Amino acid sequence: MELRIDATNPAPASEQVRTQLLAGVREGSLPPGAKLPTVRQLADQLGIAVNTVARAYRLLEEDGIVETFGRRGSFIANQGDAIQQQLQAAATQFARKAASLGVSAKDAQRVVVAAINGELG
């Protein structure tokens, strides 16, 4: 998978790296266990600061998408589909909140669909 930084994109370079890596995980071009380039290698390849790549990797680690093992490097996490796990956790949290507010399933679905359409188009 080849990553690129788009200078015309208003998103910070770290966010561009993060979203491209997430897309690779979703598409399957970065399967569980895939070794990622070192922070320094990817920074050199993209022409950006090392700290920028390190931030992207750190955010992906916090989300359970990437695992880093010191000198062995960074890898796509093996613990199943972390993206689906996070979506399920968020959906469950939303459903619990809606139930605690006494919202009907139909109204909760309407709110979710509106939010999804607003964020994802």
Rank of each mutant, 00 (worst) to 15 (best):
K97M: 09
G33M: 04
R96C: 00
A49T: 07
A34M: 04
V103E: 11
Q86P: 00
M1L: 00
G121A: 11
K106I: 12
Q84H: 11
E15Y: 09
I116W: 15
T68Y: 06
T19D: 13
Q86T: 08
A89D: 15
A7L: 07
G70R: 13
R55Y: 04
I76F: 12
A54N: 05
Q20F: 08
A108M: 11
L30E: 06
A77I: 06
R18L: 15
Q86V: 07
L22E: 15
K106A: 11
V66K: 01
R58Q: 00
E62R: 06
E119A: 14
G33N: 06
S74C: 06
D81C: 01
T38Q: 05
L87R: 11
F69M: 02
R26H: 08
R58M: 07
P32N: 02
L59N: 08
A98Y: 09
K35T: 00
A90I: 13
E62A: 03
A7K: 06
A108I: 10
N9Q: 10
Q86C: 04
S14Q: 09
S14T: 14
S100Q: 15
E61I: 10
A115F: 01
L36F: 06
Q45A: 09
V66S: 02
L42Y: 02
F75W: 05
A98D: 13
A56L: 12
L36H: 01
T38G: 14
E67S: 03
S14K: 03
V103S: 06
G102V: 11
A82G: 10
G102N: 12
V25D: 02
R96E: 10
S74Q: 04
L87V: 03
G73R: 07
K97P: 11
Q93G: 11
Q93C: 04
A49P: 02
I65V: 12
V39F: 03
N51E: 03
V113I: 09
L120C: 02
Q16T: 10
R18K: 15
Y57I: 09
D107I: 10
Y57R: 08
L46G: 07
E2I: 10
I65Q: 09
A34D: 05
S100G: 10
T52S: 09
F94G: 06
A91M: 07
T52M: 03
T92R: 13
